[in-house]
């Protein structure tokens, strides 16, 4: 399939990434090449085959509803690029 720069713009938007003009051209060409290669899967007839997300038939892996102590707030916030000692901070984000 044809990968257009418009499509690359769209998936950049979805991924929160931006590419400069030259990078975008390279990326468009590379993605087109990779996606073309992936199209070999169409040689295989997979009609009726259930898509497999987990290789093991594990199921119902559940936790009991028992409270454990939370992480110390100072330790969590220590990882953050911007905090005020109570909360993580970002530029205005309220609609």
């Amino acid at each position: 399939m044809k990968i257009t720069t418009e499509l690359v713009d769209h998936i950049c938007g979805l991924s929160c990434l931006e590419l400069q003009t030259e990078e975008k051209q390279d990326m468009t060409a590379q993605l087109e090449q990779i996606v073309a290669y992936m199209d070999v899967l169409n040689e295989l007839d997979t009609t009726g085959i259930e898509p497999m997300s987990h290789v093991f038939p594990l199921k119902n892996v559940l936790r009991e509803d028992e409270e454990l102590p939370s992480q110390d707030r100072a330790e969590l916030l220590a990882c953050a690029p911007a905090s005020d000692g109570e909360a993580f901070l970002v530029p205005k984000a309220v609609e």
């Binding site: 005020d84 909360a87 901070l89 970002v90 205005k92 984000a93």
Partner: peptide, 8 residues
């Protein structure tokens, strides 16, 4: 401060 606090 024109900043948003995130409380999780």
């Amino acid at each position: 401060t024109d900043r948003t606090q995130i409380d999780l």
